[in-house]
Write a protein that binds this DNA or RNA. Sequence first.
DNA 1: TAAAAAATTTAGACTAATCTAAAATATGGA
DNA 2: TCCATATTTTAGATTAGTCTAAATTTTTTA
Lengths: 217, 217
Amino acid sequence: MNTLAEENYLKCIYHLSADAGIVSTNQIAASLNTKASSVTDMLKKLADKVLINYTRYQGVSLTPAGEKIAVGIIRKHRLWEYFLVEKLNFKWDQVHDMAEEMEHISSEELIDRLDEFMGHPKHDPHGDPIPDCNGKFKSAELKPLSTLTVNQCGVISGVRDHSSPFLQYLEKQQLTIGKTITITDIIEYDHSVALKLEANKEIHISREVANNLLIAL
Amino acid sequence: MNTLAEENYLKCIYHLSADAGIVSTNQIAASLNTKASSVTDMLKKLADKVLINYTRYQGVSLTPAGEKIAVGIIRKHRLWEYFLVEKLNFKWDQVHDMAEEMEHISSEELIDRLDEFMGHPKHDPHGDPIPDCNGKFKSAELKPLSTLTVNQCGVISGVRDHSSPFLQYLEKQQLTIGKTITITDIIEYDHSVALKLEANKEIHISREVANNLLIAL
DNA sequence: TAAAAAATTTAGACTAATCTAAAATATGGA
DNA sequence: TCCATATTTTAGATTAGTCTAAATTTTTTA
C-alpha cells in the first residue's frame, strides 16, 4: 500500500493542517525531525500519488485520498492507545511510542474488531476523539483552560501537549480527563490560574499548563 | 535495534535450523522469496553483528545472541496470534499475516503485559509452544499422524503446514487442536488413514494430511 | 521597491536492501 | 580423481529515504 515514511508524512501533514490549513516544508521538517530537502523529495512523491496538493514553494494540503489515509492511521493510533491503557493497564503517558508503531499494522479488519472488542470507544486516553470505521468523528468544542474566567466551571477533556512529563505532572495534580474544575482566581502578574477540583481541593497552575489543558464547558 | 529485514532473516534461520542444524544460503532464499545473492549480503551483515556463525560457502547457524532475538520474535508472533483468535475471534487460518506484522512491535513490556492479560498461554492457536519472557519453552513430543499404527490413539496437538487451505480443511473435518482421535485403518495402497473422532465419527484422510497433523500420544 | 533574510528546492552523495549477471567454489558421479 | 553441475559469492546497478551544500524563490524590511 503506502510505505511507513509516506504514512508518517500524511499523518504529520494532517495534524499540522488542523491549525494552519496549508502546511510549509519547514513545519513538516521540524515536526518529523528531518531536513527540508528530504521533505521536498517526499512531497513530490506524495503529489505524484495524488495524496497531497503541492506546488513548489507554496506549501501543501491533503487531498481527500490523503486525508482518508491520515484519518485511518489516527484511528488506529488512538484505538491502540485505548487498548494499551484500558486492557494492558499502561499509564496515559506511556502509550504514545508504542501506538506510533502499532498504527502501521495494515489490516482494516483487525482494527475494526479491536474497536468492537473495546466497545467502540469515542475518545482515546488523552481525550482525543477516535474516528469511526468510516473516518467520521466530531471533535468537541474545547477551550484552553487559560481562556476561562473566574468562577467559570468545566470538565477537563483534552490536552494540547502529549509529552510524558506534562502528562505525568497532570496525573500527579489529579488533573485528568473527566475531572470537573472551577476557576477560583487568575493572577494578573503571570497569568497563572488557581482552581478548585471536585473534592474542593485547591491547586495552582502556571499559564503554560493552563494553555495546554482543554476544557469542555 | 535491528531492522525488519534482519529480524525476518533471524527468524527464518531459526525455523530452518530446527530441521537441519546448519542452514544453506539457498534454503534461506527460497524461504524468504528472495535471491541467493541478497541472502549472502545479509549474512555478512548479521555475521558482523555476531548474530550468526557464518563462513563463506559453509552455511550458517545462529549464535546465542541471534537465537535470543529469533525466539523473542517467535514469542511475539505466537502471543499476537493467540490474542487475535481468543480476543478478537479470528479463525486460526486468518491470523498468520497479521501476526507477521505485529511480531515486529518492539516493546518488551507490551508483550509481557499482553502475555499476562491473556493468562500466560502455553500454546498458540496452531498448537505451537509460546516461549516465556525468558525465551524458555518445551516443545512436546509430537509425531506425525502418519507414523501411528492401527488402534493407536492420541490428541491432535499441532500442524506442520500453517497454510490457510490446510487449516480450513482441518476445521471442516473437525480435526482441530485438542481433539482425540483413534486410528481405525491404514490403507496399504496409498497410505491414507481412517480414523475415529470423539463422537465416534469416522473420517478418512490422505497420507499428505496425515503427514502434516501432529499427535501427542 | 530593492536588498537582505528566510524558506524552499535542486544537485549530488550515502545507506539498506534488493536485483541480475558473472565469477568462484563445492559436490557428486563416472 | 576429474569434470559437469549446483551452489554460493562478487561486482555492479537500482530504489527509497535520507543528508549536505549550493542555487533558487519568496518574504521581509528598511
